[in-house]
Nucleic acid binder design. Structure first.
Lengths: 295, 295
DNA sequence: TCATATCAATCGATAAAACCGATTTAAGAT
DNA sequence: ATCTTAAATCGGTTTTATCGATTGATATGA
């Protein structure tokens, strides 16, 4: 068993397609096939079932994946520790964020970049579900999101600010003057909501469910700027954390009178893995900014 | 970076001698030297300092060791999971135990062997310090010992029985008739105690320390049977958990009147690693036996 | 139903690299 | 100063990871 083989296996498992996996690994399909076979021989059990042109994981493969991933990750951690040790600061940050938190991420990136100009930063926007998935595949360093109701044991949550869910309306609309709205009011409005997978959406669904209300959801999208543009037309309304639209000139947020609509924003990262210097430094910047209540 | 290189590094780190490490790895010294060098090149930093004929770890090497070890362990765990899956039961158990717990281990081994005759069992006697050290190097599956005062985060403690520290004397000796003794009484006696590293010894030292007493420790050894033999001569006395001598014909244990001399026996194992079927089964047998109060 | 496209396995050849034995180098030990 | 010991280096050998081409199997669709 070698790390090379584990890396091959992981990619093959994730794509369930040897040809494509081989391409992404920059090796030939033949090589991948042979190496997987060799690994299977050593383990004494097939990791994939081959039915016709398709492959899928065996139970063994499913069990083994977890360990393969962790094994490779430990090796990466070890590598990272030594890179950090030299204080090279030639790092790379992969940040996942939901749209609702860009207003705090953006200044954090600016401040961080001023301190560590050599570090390359990649920002991935997505739903909390997507992002936490990628986090647990070690594809992201950390994720900014409104906290999931379901806390995961293997994840670390550092709270940032909390924000009320609000109804978002266009400034010209008749609603714009109201101080607050009720869930019943909202039920009557044409809504454009973030797609399933967004933590905010999950939250909204649960709130309505609990009050036995059935809102008119005309439209859903996974692109929040689009959503805001739609609301800007004056026809639709949406529901988002108040902070999401804090710097949108043409929109207003109207508090919702309801039991609990307070959402907690947090930094989500993994326990039990090495936290590189760059990540630590970024957290510091983020928490600092948060204290200064930039939102 | 490959698992092979990490395995080589681990062995070299543990022996701090390339020639010997190479021998134990069944490769030539030349190969080991080259592979370590290659690893160092990839990591961009030396793992060993070479001063003359000796090598010692660099700071980088020291940091890296932890990850290398965990990486290899994850691979082993993955391997083990699949072996267990086939329910082959052709396993191997490495058990560490202190002498004081052999009376419960021994029947457990017998019972376990009856159920799983194919499984090879190795038992290592040692001090709690030695054993927990080896446990964290993944050299043992679990350890039986009287619980350390210092609980380690990465370890799991499953309590077994508890036992009073007692003064152990020879049956013929004048003390043998006494119902209890005080710490002051003991202070006057010639003592032969388990060496430092034994949890019992640590415990004893602390008890005397707390009462500002200075016992006459004439002799210490890391071999408990020897200790018992010495006590059997009638000259020396020792202090051990009462259960340690429960099946010694010629010795008696006399309770000590003191605040807290209750020691907790426990199974110590590691968190966060795969617990193989054989280990689970052995735990079951042990805890079952313990319930039946065999001690 | 038959041709076609697609994907994994297999084969033979090649390049890479892991490995070994012998030698060199450097440092303790005598 | 000489001997011993341990790591590094060198040249050659073996192993194996890899590739391209081909085969075999099976979905797709004409």
């Amino acid at each position: 068993m070698e790390l090379r083989q584990l890396r091959y296996f992981i990619k093959a498992k994730e794509l369930l397609n040897f040809t494509e996996a081989a391409a992404q690994l920059f090796i030939s399909q033949s090589t991948l096939s042979q190496q997987i076979k060799q690994l299977e021989d050593e383990l004494g059990t097939p990791l994939f079932n081959r039915v016709g042109k398709h492959i899928y994981l065996t139970e063994a493969g499913d069990l083994f994946y977890k360990y393969a991933l962790q094994c490779v990750q430990k090796a990466n951690d070890g590598y990272q520790v030594l890179k950090d040790l030299g204080n090279l600061e030639t790092g790379h940050l992969m940040i996942g964020t939901t749209y609702g938190l860009r207003h705090i991420l953006s200044p954090a990136i600016q401040a961080f970049h001023r301190q560590h100009p050599q570090i390359v930063i990649q920002v991935i926007f997505g739903t909390s579900t997507e992002l936490t998935d990628r986090l647990s595949k070690f594809e992201l360093d950390f994720v900014l999101t409104f906290e999931e109701v379901t806390h995961n044991q293997s994840m670390k949550y550092q709270p940032l600010f909390s924000s009320e869910l609000s109804l978002i309306a266009c400034k010209g609309s008749p609603l714009a003057e109201k101080k607050t709205v009720t869930l019943q009011d909202i039920q009557e409005l044409p809504l454009a909501l973030p797609a399933r997978g967004f933590s905010t959406r999950k939250f909204v669904d649960e709130v309505f469910e609990k009050h036995h209300l059935f809102p008119k959801i005309n439209l859903e999208t996974n692109d929040i700027p689009t959503l805001l543009e739609l609301v800007g037309t004056g026809y639709w309304n949406t529901i988002l954390a108040q902070t999401t639209v804090s710097n949108q000139e043409n929109l207003v947020s109207i508090p919702i009178r309801s039991l609990k609509t307070l959402q907690q924003a947090a930094i989500v990262s993994l326990h039990d893995i090495y936290e590189k210097q760059a990540v630590k430094a970024f957290f510091k910047v983020l928490l600092q900014l948060d204290l200064n209540k930039l939102h």
